[in-house]
Structures are given as C-alpha cells and as structure tokens.
Amino acid sequence: MDSSNPSNDGSQPGSVDGFCVNIKAKTFPAAGDAPAVKVLESLSFSISSGEFLAVIGPSGCGKTTLLNLVAGLDKEFSGDVPKVEKTGFVFQSPRLLPWMTVAGNLRLVLGQDQGQDVNMTAMLAAVGLQGQETVFANRLSMGMARRVALARALLVEPDIMLMDEPFVSLDESTADNLRAMLSDLLELTPRSILFVTHDLSEAVRLADRVLILGNQPTTTIGEMVLDRPRKDRDEEWIRQTKGNLRTRL
C-alpha cells in the first residue's frame, strides 16, 4: 500500500489498489485574446484502496480541472489517469435534475426508471433524507441538495469518489453536520476518495493524507499524512495540524 510506489499492475474492477494519476501537463488553448495557459504540470499521486486523499491549494489553481481529468470528462491533456468501472462525483454545485424528484435523480444513476430500491431507501436514510423521495429537486434547500448529491455518488458504489468542495456555500453548522455524516458513512464503508478543497480544517478533519498544490503552473509542493483515526480527531489536534499544514503552504 505504499503510495509512493506507482504500481502499474492491471487493477481489478471494483478495487482501486494504486489508483495512479500521472498528469504531465494540462494546457487550456488560447481563446480569442487570451493566451494559452498551462494550468497543471507534472502532477502525480496515487490513492490506495479506501484512502481519503484531500488536495488543497489556492482558489483557481486548477483543482476542479484536476478532477475533470481524473473523471475522464476532459481528455485534452498529456499523461495518464486510470480507467475505472464506476466513478462517483460530488460536484461543486449539486447538479441535480430540477425536473426530477429526489428518487428520480437517484434512480437515474442506478439505471432504473421506476420502482423502489432498497439501497436507495437505506442511502436516503443514511444521509438524513428519509421520506423525501417524492420532493422535486428544485424544492430542496442547498443543504438537502448536497445530501442528495452525496447519496447519488455513494449509491453507485464507486471505485473512486471525486469530491469538489462539496460543502461550500453552506452555513458552517450545516457544513459541519455534513462532514460528520460523511465521516460516519466512511466508517461503515470506506471508499477511495479524491477530495479537493481550499478549506484546511476540512481537509485536516476528514483526510488520511493531504496533498498540497501550488505554483504556476500548478504542481505538488508538499504532502502530509494524517495517521490519527478520523473519529479521534479533536478540536485541539485539528487546530495544531492545521497550523503545521499552513507552514507548508
């Protein structure tokens, strides 16, 4: 499980031992008067099975771009990202279909058109939305919509879960509730997660390892392993670790 050792064995579907991302360069082509911009350069890391990797970096450093490359949504780059069977993506905005109910949104990714799914019901209960199946997604509060987006990503039982600042634009107590909920869910079923954020305390609270991005074009400038179990992380430890992390930025 040594993450520094990039293994190139063909990973089994369903397991992502050594989910190795290796981006040589990502450049946005010139558009109109704007010149071409190289956003990412020599950025490689791997995520072992069940590991929670947080990527932090200043706003606009290309974190969302990185996730789009890993998800295979953007193929215009040089380098390799692993192909996996199932990807779960929690986007920066919930990206639910407003003309569908909560249940409809979840059924869509399950490949069903109707009917009740036991996993779906259980998942809705797990994210605190039991009985909300028939609510149209455009009627949900931001906090609820984010819960549905999280439920949607977990429900596909992803080999890798990508999370793009999934708790922004929420008030702090709602965001904290959701972080605690995610932490509890991962306690039950660990998932390999690539989580990008600019919020240091969020990264320190949740991640097993933090990757620090910086420079222009963006590359890895540091790494920190957080070996204390998530549930044992108290405010004091979080504050200290955050302080340590800040000195590395």
Partner: peptide, 20 residues
C-alpha cells in the same frame, strides 16, 4: 454541467437524451 454529470455517472446516450 448536467451532461458532464450524466457522462461521469455513465447514464448512457438514450437515457441522457430522455431524462436530461
């Protein structure tokens, strides 16, 4: 953004057309 979502969750062409 919704098309990217459909693409990422592998919703398929027909269902993407119909539902999205």
């Amino acid at each position: 953004d919704l098309l990217d979502m459909a693409n990422c969750f592998k919703i398929g062409r027909g269902r993407t057309l119909r539902h999205i």
